[in-house]
């Protein structure tokens, strides 16, 4: 997963694989990563995710994803990947006279 030190192994607890939990806080918002749970299967993972991460109406929808299924970008490659070398992609790159008004 994006939040894990290694992506190659699937850590277990007593043989239970790890699942990443994503919570939609309310309608209109994305699911956001909340943490992880260990569970033997998807249904139980969902149940645990509910018990651990939404005890106080923190969400209206849950996703659980096997941690081992998440492919993450290389944290050291960020400058190549996430650099911002094309300033002309930003609206502030363009100078528009004040007379034009809001544009």
């Amino acid at each position: 997963m994006t939040d894990r030190a290694t992506t190659t192994s699937a850590p277990t607890v007593g043989g239970y694989p790890l699942w990443e939990v994503f919570v939609r806080a309310k309608r209109g918002l994305n699911h956001v990563h909340a943490g992880s749970v260990h569970a033997p299967d998807a249904d139980t993972a969902l149940q645990h995710a509910r018990d651990v991460y939404t005890r106080r109406a923190e969400g209206v929808s849950l996703w659980v994803v096997p941690s081992a299924a998440i492919v993450a970008s290389d944290p050291d490659g960020r400058d190549d990947w996430f650099g911002d070398s094309k300033p002309y992609r930003h609206p502030t790159f363009y100078t528009i006279p004040d007379e034009v008004g809001h544009l």
Binding site: D3, R4, A5, T6, P11, T12, V13, G14, L18, G35, S36, V37, H38, D51, V52, R55
Partner: peptide, 25 residues
């Protein structure tokens, strides 16, 4: 409810700890 929260807090923290490459086992 309070004791259940303590279990929950333990699980949030184990989840955070496991991101450092140590397993729950």
């Amino acid at each position: 409810a309070k004791v259940q929260d303590e279990a929950g807090h333990g699980l949030y923290l184990y989840s955070a700890c496991e991101t450092l490459g140590i397993s729950r086992d």
